[in-house]
């Protein structure tokens, strides 16, 4: 990993000197807020083009879903005749921090819940509306909008107390080998982050930018969609969207990115 980045850095630095360009993002040692201690956002593993696309609000394609989410926020739905804003008012205030600290333990459920599940819980109990389907346009839009209200805030999830047993389960999942390829999350994203798998660079698998607009998907996707894709790549049977296994894993992986800024909607390859 170190060799690879050093090679790239040297190559880019040499190129920069050769064409007379001054210091730019080529300095891989300083990623600003996108690196905290030894933890680096997927942002730092992307190309300059993808990074530029993410940080420019007008270019970031994920913002279309955020805008759609803003519309849904104030749209009345369900038998109770309410919208999100009926109870929660201005999302910029009421939703600030949610994307940084979820998943959290729901005492009534006796387990973790993530943002998607909180949205559907609200829709059921308070709005008397039908739940959104996972990965539907509505769910992706509203989740993007809610998480976007925490843009730039450091990821800070609670992993002790009531959350501890779920955190431990998520951690165990992360280190457990699975599938015909018999690989764990850690073997790629901890041991080999920064290394190339054929044409793709392995990142740390941080989830601080979800729902993330993936160029490969041509739309945003949830963390659970990404988990399923990873599991299938090692030829393992994926768990369901919203399964306890994935929500526990979501907490653990989010903790791995503690301190990194919420980037929703991130842009990734």
């Amino acid at each position: 990993m170190k060799f690879f980045w050093r090679d790239i850095t040297l190559a880019v630095a040499t190129l920069s000197v050769a064409v007379g360009v001054g210091a730019s993002s080529a300095n891989a040692a300083d990623w600003g807020p996108y690196q905290v201690e030894d933890r680096r956002s997927g942002y730092t593993y992307m190309t300059d083009e993808s990074r530029a696309m993410q940080v420019d609000t007008f270019q970031n394609p994920g913002m279309l879903w955020v805008e759609e989410g803003a519309d849904l926020w104030t749209t009345v739905d369900g038998k109770a005749g309410k919208s999100c804003s009926t109870c929660h008012g201005d999302a910029a205030e009421s939703m600030k921090g949610i994307g940084a600290r979820y998943p959290v333990v729901d005492e009534g459920m006796g387990k973790l819940k993530n943002v998607e599940q909180q949205i559907n819980s609200c829709r059921g109990k308070n709005m008397e509306a039908a739940p959104y389907k996972w990965e539907s346009k509505e769910m992706l839009s509203l989740t993007s909008y809610v998480n976007h209200q925490s843009l730039g805030l450091p990821v800070s999830v609670k992993v002790d107390g009531a959350a501890a047993p779920f955190f431990e389960k998520g951690k165990a999942f992360y280190y457990e080998r699975r599938g015909q390829l018999d690989m764990s999350c850690s073997q790629c994203h901890e041991d080999n982050a920064g290394n190339m798998v054929r044409a793709n660079i392995l990142s740390e698998g941080q989830i601080n930018g979800f729902p993330t607009y993936r160029l490969k998907w041509q739309k945003p996707g949830s963390t659970h969609r990404r988990f399923r894709g990873c599991n299938k790549q090692v030829r393992s049977t994926p768990f369901g969207y919203g399964s306890d296994e994935y929500v526990n894993l979501e907490l653990y992986v989010k903790w791995r990115g503690r301190g990194l800024p919420v980037e929703t909607p991130a842009v990734r390859n």
């Binding site: 457990e176 080998r177 699975r178 599938g179 015909q180 390829l181 018999d182 690989m183 073997q187 790629c188 041991d191 080999n192 599991n231 299938k232 030829r235 393992s236 049977t237």
Partner: peptide
């Protein structure tokens, strides 16, 4: 990390 190319036993949740 290298997969076993001729093994079926001892694997977990194979598709």
């Amino acid at each position: 990390i290298m997969p076993a190319f001729y093994r079926t036993e001892g694997l977990h949740r194979v598709l």
